[in-house]
């Protein structure tokens, strides 16, 4: 899966390795996809803002 620079610090929703929704909060990104017929196939991730350590 590929995260673009614009995804940094945001929640994304992915299906089969492709990003289908992006938003600033988990609540908002979930609202974008909750009514999809394939909701059970989706997966959520918080993209790091940049380099992380620890």
């Amino acid at each position: 899966m590929k995260f673009k620079a614009e995804h940094a610090g945001k929640w994304i929703v992915a299906k089969d390795g492709k990003i289908v929704a992006v938003d600033k909060t988990l609540t908002r990104v979930k609202k974008q996809v909750v009514s999809r017929g394939d909701f059970s196939e989706l997966r959520f991730a918080l993209v790091p803002r940049g380099h992380i350590a620890g």
């Binding site: 899966m1 590929k2 995260f3 995804h7 940094a8 989706l42 959520f44 991730a45 380099h51």
Partner: peptide
């Protein structure tokens, strides 16, 4: 992951679903 400065990183993300007694959320 691509960064705004043109750099990038490769990250070992794996699919994990977290489940409580009542709810679950599939994540990376």
């Amino acid at each position: 992951q691509q960064f705004a400065d043109g750099g990038g990183m490769s990250l070992p993300l794996i699919p994990v679903t977290f489940r409580s007694k009542k709810h679950s959320i599939p994540t990376f």
